[in-house]
Amino acid sequence: MTDLIKAIDPRGLIRESYRIDGIRIEECRSIFLDWALFDDHEMPQAERIKTLLTHFGADAPEHPMTEVMKLALDDAAAPKRRGGRKGRVG
């Protein structure tokens, strides 16, 4: 494992999720949320997710954690509507 991956996933949550046989998407969501809420890294989160996907997801494209991380990137990229005055005025 590279130093960058160790820095991005210091507790090994993402790494270990790929090692659990029969893990379900619900469990992967919970693990991912734990990783996302408690990470402390200067690299933007989207970049960290892309790096983890490249490292772990390339060999496991059908793994539930790969799906969870791809969905997280899709949600981050989707423009969000702003409500109230800011949404109308800019």
Rank of each mutant, 00 (worst) to 15 (best):
L37M: 09
H63F: 10
R15G: 02
E47I: 08
I5K: 07
G87L: 07
D59N: 14
M1C: 08
D39S: 09
D21Y: 00
A76E: 11
T66P: 07
D40Y: 07
K80P: 00
I20D: 02
R48W: 03
G57A: 05
D59M: 12
K80F: 01
R11H: 09
T2L: 06
I5C: 06
M1D: 09
L4Y: 00
D3P: 00
K70E: 13
E27W: 01
R48M: 13
E67G: 01
L4C: 02
S17W: 04
E62S: 14
H55Q: 11
E47N: 12
Q45I: 13
M69L: 15
Q45A: 07
K50R: 15
L37I: 02
K50P: 00
L4K: 13
R48L: 10
W35C: 04
D59C: 02
L4T: 12
K6I: 00
A36H: 06
D21W: 00
D39Y: 03
W35D: 03
F56M: 06
G22Y: 00
H55F: 13
C28W: 02
S17C: 14
L37E: 06
R82N: 04
A58R: 15
Y18C: 09
E67T: 15
I31M: 04
A7W: 00
L71I: 12
I31S: 04
P61A: 06
K50F: 00
R81I: 11
I14H: 03
G90D: 03
I14G: 04
D21C: 10
R88H: 01
D75L: 15
G12S: 11
E47R: 13
I23L: 10
I8C: 10
Y18H: 06
M1F: 02
F56C: 09
W35G: 07
E26A: 13
A72K: 09
D40V: 05
R85N: 03
L53T: 10
D3Y: 01
D39N: 14
A46N: 11
P44F: 00
M69F: 05
M43R: 12
I31D: 02
S30C: 08
A76D: 10
D74P: 00
K50S: 13
P61W: 04
F32S: 03
E27N: 02
L73G: 07
T54I: 11
F38N: 15
A7R: 12
H63Y: 09
G83F: 07
L4W: 01
T51S: 13
G84K: 05
S17Y: 01
G84H: 07
D21L: 08
A72E: 11
E62D: 15
V68G: 03
A76I: 06
K86D: 14
W35R: 04
E42V: 05
A58E: 12
R48E: 13
G12N: 09
D40G: 05
Q45E: 15
A77T: 10
G12V: 07
E42M: 05
D34N: 08
E16G: 00
M69V: 05
R88N: 06
C28F: 04
K70C: 11
L33R: 14
E67C: 03
I49K: 06
K70W: 02
E42L: 10
I23P: 08
H41F: 08
F56P: 06
H41T: 03
M65I: 08
F32D: 04
